[in-house]
């Protein structure tokens, strides 16, 4: 350990103070191929230093985002969940790719029939093909889930984050407003708000969810921005003359985003379920629209699923899988953005 690694650029031997020699030494180390191979015992000595997993000094400057992407591509959890989500998106756009029947053409005489060749998931109460309905339901459910989550996350983090960063009257106002929204029972709000609108589309439902959902994220974003803001590195950036935008984007955002990602991905599942509950109460989407939520609530009526569990099982499984995929994705992204976990 005493001997110096021979290929190290040996800063110690060079006169310091930005002289050209020192610079040349640094540059030389960067291009020298041998320097890339971390010799045993050459890694950073700090107790926290992991074994020489570093790709070594490459000429490339790396950043959090490029490192995160580098990590994500190698993370099986990310790959699996991303593929699953890609698949969901594909069948939402083109359900015909894997389902050939019409989800609305049903035969009542086949009500609750079990699985049969060509109809692997069986029939529901109305005699519709469960498989086809699960495939076509993806569009509504995924749209509601993803768009509502995105809307909530963006609105919530921007409003909450700015309130946390700037403080003052804007923060006080926002806090009171979120308190008011927290006081509104979501079901009651749904009944009032959605029954006032005449024709309800997927977008009406999404708008309603964003309207009532953003305070939750805003509160979390505000808290994590406040705690990130207090770190000395934000002060350090300010002392360097950094403006608010830089402090927010470079220093606060990456350090405050993790709890927002976690809450948002978990909320995604509840939003899909919320759409179902609203439909069940008659203020959500109207019958011709196919959605997992609607099918789940239909199936849970009158205990029919006791005799024919498949009518509940398949849409519920699709919903769970979707939620799981997003939670896994959120987890993977959060971990990739934390250099300590590398």
């Amino acid at each position: 350990m005493v001997e110096r690694a021979p290929e190290s650029p040996s800063a110690a031997d060079e006169p310091p103070a930005g002289s050209p020699t020192a610079a040349a030494a640094g540059g030389g180390g960067g291009t020298g191929a041998a320097a890339g191979l971390a010799a045993p015992g050459e890694q950073a000595p700090g107790p926290a230093a992991p074994p020489g997993t570093e790709p070594g000094p490459s000429g490339q400057a790396r950043s959090l985002w490029s490192d995160a992407w580098h990590d994500l591509r190698r993370n099986p959890v990310f790959v699996v969940s991303a593929l699953l989500i890609l698949f969901l998106v594909l069948i939402s756009v083109w359900p015909g790719l894997i389902a050939t029947r019409n989800p609305l053409s049903c035969q009542l005489n086949k009500s609750l029939d079990p699985a049969s060749p060509g109809h692997w998931f069986g029939y529901d109460t109305q005699g519709c093909d469960v498989y086809t309905r699960v495939v076509y339901g993806a569009r509504t459910s995924v749209t509601v889930g993803v768009c509502a989550t995105l809307g909530v996350a963006v609105a919530g983090s921007v409003l909450g984050g700015l309130a946390g960063f700037f403080g003052g009257w804007w923060d006080a106002l926002l806090s009171r407003v979120t308190d008011v929204f927290f006081g509104i029972p979501i079901m009651l709000g749904g009944l009032v708000f959605l029954s006032m609108t005449g024709s309800r589309s997927v977008w009406t439902v999404i708008a309603f969810i964003v309207l009532l959902g953003w305070p939750q994220i805003a509160r979390i974003a505000r808290g994590s921005v406040i705690s990130a803001k207090q770190n000395d590195y934000v002060q350090a950036a300010r002392a360097l003359g950094a403006g608010n935008a830089r402090m927010l984007v470079r220093h606060i955002l990456p350090n405050a985003v993790a709890p927002v990602i976690v809450t948002a991905t978990i909320a995604l599942g509840t939003y899909i379920a919320l759409e179902a509950t609203l439909s069940y109460l008659g203020v959500g989407l109207q019958p011709p629209t196919v959605s997992w939520g609607a099918d789940i609530s239909d199936a849970s009526q009158g205990m029919q699923f006791r005799n024919a569990p498949h009518i509940l099982l398949y849409p519920a499984a699709a919903l769970s899988l979707t939620v799981l995929a997003f939670i896994m994705l959120g987890d993977a992204v959060r971990d990739a953005l934390d250099p300590k976990l590398r």
Partner: peptide
């Protein structure tokens, strides 16, 4: 940046490491 690291006695190759890897 590499010059600066050198001046304060750190290995200039450490540019791509994160703070938690240091003491």
């Amino acid at each position: 940046v590499q010059e600066l690291l050198d001046v304060v006695g750190l290995n200039p190759e450490y540019v791509n490491r994160y703070p938690h890897q240091f003491s």
